[in-house]
Amino acid sequence: MDTVSDYVVEVEGLGRRFKRTVALEGFSLKIPRGGVFGLVGENGAGKTTLIKHLLGLYKAEQGTVRVFGLDPVQEPEKVLGGIGYLSEDRDLPGWMKVKELMRYTAAFYPKWDPEYAEKLRQVFELDPKAKLRTLSRGQLAKAGLLAALAHRPDLLLLDEPSSGLDPVVRREILSAIIRTVADEGRTVLFSSHLLDEVERVADRVAMIHQGKLVLDAPMEEIKDTHHRMTIRYTNGQTAKPDFPGMLSCQGRGNEWTIVFQGNVNAAKEHLGNGIEILQVESPSLEEIFVARVGRSISIEED
């Protein structure tokens, strides 16, 4: 699996349509080796479509997809051998028992570590004789995670790992992600709309909106370049402020709260003299996300 490239995933100009719906358009993304990559977007923004392209479950209609420097459609065995995947809808066959799942999955991965698998099973408190059909949602997610982790994949792909799960199971999944990435050189790509989680664990975040990449940057950079500023007009003006880099604006009258990207001083200059800045804070990822997505909606309405 050793390739020259520093990137685990390279997506170039990817486009995909489902009949009339555009799922992805001109999508380019590079995921560096190591670290946790968070993929955020609304439902139906194209997150799952992207992940399925990485797995080779979808063939790129436009553009190219490379995982470990290889095309997942041309060389599925090589690519999939290094990937651990937890699907969104936990489509494991219900008739299988936990131990049968472990045995079945082990057959495909030469790197499968039986001791590690057994350790995970005990940590997750999975009964080896239980059928998957009888497991609760949380346990099923854990069983899926076990199958995805036990061969110590180079790339762990988690599609909505924590949707519909209780906080206890969510914690376990997050700590599994952290453990995985703590091993050198492993990469985790996970999609989620629980932005709180993404902000906790991700090194780097990509936002997808309506099949397009809206933002792709390291977490620190995002936090450093986005600001939430509360201003008050002192000159009696009440118009909605607007300047380049502004993402969203809320308020009425002479007091407005603005989320924007860029330098605070530059923003101040744009706004002119007649204002007083009440507060400058850094917004949470959730606020940034809502600001960005909200903005594109308002543009469309115009």
Partner: peptide
């Protein structure tokens, strides 16, 4: 097949 089968590294 479900994705869980197709994502196994098998030819």
């Amino acid at each position: 097949y479900t994705a869980s089968v197709f994502t196994k590294p098998i030819s």
